[in-house]
């Protein structure tokens, strides 16, 4: 039920006055773009991080080992202090930005040390060390992005060989199982959604795990689409990919409209846009191969953010959610 409808009911039940209803709605409207801005901060953070990486990478060979290490530790120190400062001053957007950058910088530092000292540990060691050292950020930052990334790191350290064998067997019978797979995912998705709702919002890790599983439903659809031949150029296979992905998203949008769930509708509409954006990116992938192209790519992301913002604004005005 939308907030307008809810508050209307409350006014009808004499729980709040008409004036209070207006105040609540005005407050909600003034805070509607908070998530958007946090997302924008996250993307800006990743872009800045990548920009710094590019800058360092371009001059990598001429830098002595000590300079690389001192520079890296200085950067990590500054980012950690910035995270601490943003936590103390309660600046939500900046806290998100600096936490993510600090978390990424920890991974980069481990990689740099491994490179300088020629350590032979593989991904498992790297991901394990990163996950372990990133633990304080899980607890303190309350960032869903860091939580999910942390879980991904932990999951990749697990022995997945046997799971992989099982799935490779299933993939062999892929065509016949596609429909069952999508139906199964849809049921799983709703079950997980129910579980997420049941979690206390402050129990971050189990909630993050459930959210990760929810996201994995979408990832599974993407994987399924990839098996249809996402990276191939033949028209029928590409059509199959898009039919699978858009079909799933359309199903989610339809359910959201039917149940008048604005959040779900917004999320799936945004995912649809991102998917369209990815198709566009895939067809213009050569853009990303040069420095200038990278800037162009950054601008494309900004355009995407603008489109997403407009979409979410428009969705909030839609009559079906009134």
């Amino acid at each position: 039920m939308s907030l307008t409808k809810k508050t209307e009911t409350w006014v009808g039940q004499h729980i709040i006055t008409r004036e209070q209803q207006q105040q609540i709605l005005a407050f909600e409207r003034s805070h509607t773009n908070r998530t958007f801005w946090i997302t924008a901060f996250v993307i800006a953070g990743i872009l800045i991080g990548l920009g710094i990486c590019l800058l360092i990478a371009a001059n990598w060979q001429v830098l002595p080992e000590l300079v690389k290490l001192v520079g890296d530790f200085a950067l990590l120190g500054v980012l950690t202090y910035a995270t601490y400062w943003s936590m103390q001053t309660r600046k939500t957007g900046l806290r998100e930005l600096f936490s993510i950058l600090s978390f990424l910088a920890i991974g980069a530092t481990i990689g740099l040390i491994a490179q300088i000292f020629h350590l032979s540990g593989g991904w498992t060691n790297f991901a394990g060390a990163w996950a372990l050292l990133g633990l304080p950020f899980i607890w303190l930052s309350r960032s869903t992005w860091i939580n999910l990334t942390w879980w991904c790191l932990v999951l990749t350290t697990c022995p997945w060989k046997h799971v992989e064998k099982f799935f490779s067997y299933v993939w062999d019978e892929f065509t016949c199982l596609t429909v069952l797979f999508v139906i199964g995912l849809y049921i799983l998705y709703n079950l997980l959604k129910y579980l997420v709702k049941r979690f206390d919002p402050y129990t971050r890790l189990p909630r993050a795990a459930a959210l990760l599983l929810l996201a994995s439903c979408y990832l599974s659809i993407a994987a399924l689409a990839a098996l249809w031949g996402l990276w191939q150029t033949q028209f029928p296979t590409v059509l199959g990919v898009h039919a699978t992905v858009f079909g799933f998203l359309a199903l989610r949008l339809y359910t959201a409209v039917k149940e008048q769930q604005i959040t779900s509708f917004k999320r799936n509409a945004v995912l649809t846009e991102i998917y369209i954006f990815l198709i566009f990116m895939f067809h213009t992938s050569s853009l990303w191969l040069s420095g200038l192209g990278f800037i162009g790519g950054g601008l494309l992301i900004l355009i995407l953010i603008y489109c997403l913002r407009q979409t979410t604004r428009y969705i909030k005005q839609m009559e079906i959610f009134k």
């Binding site: 530790f73 600090s102 050292l133 303190l140």
Partner: peptide, 8 residues
């Protein structure tokens, strides 16, 4: 917050 930095 500074524990990872110190460990590294």
């Amino acid at each position: 917050l500074f524990l990872p930095w110190m460990c590294l």
